[in-house]
């Protein structure tokens, strides 16, 4: 376990190169338990790459990522995969729902992967869908949902396993502003009650304003840290 005051997730001096372009050039960030941290910056500043590195989706070329004392950037892939399943939840711009599965099955999937029985998994998925106001769309497939509904389904899928960290990469990027506001306030109220921390990537100041704190990236480095915990 982490020390009482230490960060839950800490990235230090991350370097990552995509081909010939440097996506990250010594970026650092700390995420504390239960806080919402916004990472903002112009496009191409390395926001998504930072999230990918911190979520263990991508291995950085240099620097380190620690999650509760476990070093993620050098951890074997199986362990990372398990970690993403149990401790982390992920939400992307276009959701990450499997187009062929019903909304309920999509949300139940992470639980089934963890060994929960289908019936139990579907029941818990249903509760989360109800909570996000899309309980009546459980039998629909993602293609039959509106953008806002699909994104709520994606939130439910990210939160259903009770993760300690939620990684959200432009979660409202594909939504109109009212749907975006709703999705954000539902995300915030859900993590406030579950105590999960959120790493929120966005280029939209109004979305960033839902966070407790903000890191601004420019040219692959954290340019400034603002706000108080």
């Amino acid at each position: 376990m982490s020390t009482a005051n230490g960060p839950l997730l800490a990235a230090r001096d991350l370097v990552k190169t995509h081909g010939r372009t440097d996506a990250l050039r010594g970026a650092s960030a700390e995420l504390h338990a239960g806080e919402i941290l916004a990472v903002t910056g112009p496009s191409g500043s390395g926001k998504s790459t930072l999230l990918h590195c911190m979520a263990g989706i991508v291995r950085p070329d240099g620097g380190s990522v620690h999650y509760e004392g476990l070093r993620i950037d050098t951890c074997p892939e199986d362990r990372l995969s398990a970690l993403r399943r149990t401790d982390f939840g992920v939400v992307f711009q276009f959701g990450q729902l499997i187009p062929e599965l019903t909304l309920t099955d999509n949300v139940a999937l992470p639980l089934m992967l963890a060994g929960t029985s289908r019936r139990e998994a579907r029941a818990r998925a249903g509760e989360w869908l109800d909570r996000f106001g899309v309980g009546d769309r459980g039998d629909a497939r993602p293609g039959e949902l509106s953008g806002g509904q699909a994104q709520r389904g994606a939130l439910a899928r990210a939160l259903v396993t009770g993760p300690r960290v939620v990684f959200a990469d432009e979660p409202t990027g594909a939504l109109d502003s009212l749907s975006g506001e709703r999705v954000m306030s539902e995300l915030v109220s859900a993590v406030r009650s579950s105590g999960a921390a959120v790493l929120l990537i966005t280029h939209d100041a109004r979305v960033a304003a839902y966070a407790d704190r903000e890191i601004r990236l420019a040219d692959g480095r954290a340019a400034a840290m603002e706000g108080a915990i």
């Binding site: 109004r206 304003a209 839902y210 407790d212 903000e214 706000g227």
Partner: peptide, 19 residues
Amino acid sequence: HDQRAAHMTRMRELTKVKT
């Protein structure tokens, strides 16, 4: 830069009020 930080702080306050 400082003005931006001040704006963001105010935006966070307002967001907190409305949520």
